[in-house]
């Protein structure tokens, strides 16, 4: 992330058109860095989907692979075991929040 921010600072002096191009490139590289990472997406009906981020488009439709479905018990009032759904497409309009898993799982960081 910090690299990307650095880039933005560096490019501030450049011309506006090239800035736009660069901005585009930056976003792309940002997206690229998220690809094949674990993502947690909360949907409008309170369900939470966790899976590997593999694809997206302009409307923020997201495809997660090996996706599991969990329930946000507070919101839905359902407490059930998670289900494995496989490859799943979530329409952008139903996405409430997106979380990215940061590099290492907690059970490693907590031991540190």
């Amino acid at each position: 992330m910090t690299d990307a921010e650095d880039d933005i600072h560096k490019n501030e002096d450049n011309k506006e058109c090239s800035e736009a191009v660069n901005l585009y490139e930056i976003r792309k590289s940002k997206l690229m860095s998220w690809i094949n990472k674990y993502m947690k997406i909360e949907m409008t009906d309170g369900r939470i989907l966790i899976g590997t981020f593999v694809c997206t488009d302009k409307d923020a439709n997201v495809i997660l692979s090996s996706c599991s479905e969990l329930f946000n018990t507070e919101k839905t009032g359902i407490s059930e075991e998670p289900r494995l759904l496989g490859l799943v497409m979530i329409p952008g309009k139903h996405i409430v929040s997106v979380h990215l898993e940061q590099t290492c799982p907690v059970h490693e960081t907590t031991t540190v």
């Binding site: 998220w34 302009k58 990215l100 907690v106």
Partner: peptide
Amino acid sequence: SFNWMDITQDFFDAVSFLKLGE
């Protein structure tokens, strides 16, 4: 098992730069 970071805003921001249909 996860260390989640909220990227909701970043994500929507980044995605909006994609071309239609891309």
